[in-house]
Design a protein around this nucleic acid. Sequence first.
DNA 1: ATATCTGCAAATCATTTGCGAATTG
DNA 2: CAATTCGCAAATGATTTGCAGATAT
Lengths: 132, 132
Amino acid sequence: MGPLFRKSKQRKIILGALSEMKTHPTAQELFARVRETDPEVGQATVYRNLRILKEQGEIIELSFGAGARRYDRNVARHEHFTCRRCGTIEDIYPDTRSLTGSLHKKGYRVDEMKIEAFGVCRKCAKKIKSNR
Amino acid sequence: MGPLFRKSKQRKIILGALSEMKTHPTAQELFARVRETDPEVGQATVYRNLRILKEQGEIIELSFGAGARRYDRNVARHEHFTCRRCGTIEDIYPDTRSLTGSLHKKGYRVDEMKIEAFGVCRKCAKKIKSNR
DNA sequence: ATATCTGCAAATCATTTGCGAATTG
DNA sequence: CAATTCGCAAATGATTTGCAGATAT
């Protein structure tokens, strides 16, 4: 079987910091955040632990288009909406059954489906409306 | 307005090579392919032209999870299915209207939706079946 | 003519790895 | 104690950029 994972001090710090951030941070953003309170934590430690936590199913790894990967403490099945105006990434919970269903009918075995939506979020849409 | 794009020899070579490849290649894969016939083309030229061709809407840029970006000459609206067994990336054309519709109802303005499906493709599914 | 483009090499950005020391169970 | 993890620095992989010379319109 695989290696035995320990509850290292750093692993707890990193998971704790990610839990507090609602912004779906990149490894670098999380590293910066961790450094604020624990300046002795190394950057490789952050990357290594993100990989381990992902393998353990404690967190999810995201990658929106190009650029750095992002991490998410919300492990429930969900998708993301990125606002082009304010940059916020919101969790969304679309019903994907008809999508996977039609693929199954065509002979595909689907075990994962990733959906990313882009546009203007509800908050920004309201602002735009009131400004005219 | 923006810059005037020219039809450089290299740009044509790169677009031509991508047109012939049905594999959704990375910039490096495309670079290697171009080098086979035109060894004088530089790697920066490939990257630069991929960006320009994308801006012009001649090609599409994809990024599946982590790893290098991939490029696609098929600019029609479509999505992708990646087979975990043979690695092939197939074009799929799912109906996304109900998905965008329900987001619109919730107040989001959706201008783009990206879907990536993963699993076992039809060809591999058949092979697995016949092997037992 | 001159804005655009090229090839090369060096720079940048995100991430991984080697290693000897420290920590966890 | 022995497996695991750490921090650091160097390595890697993907992509971008600076620049002087070449090219397209």
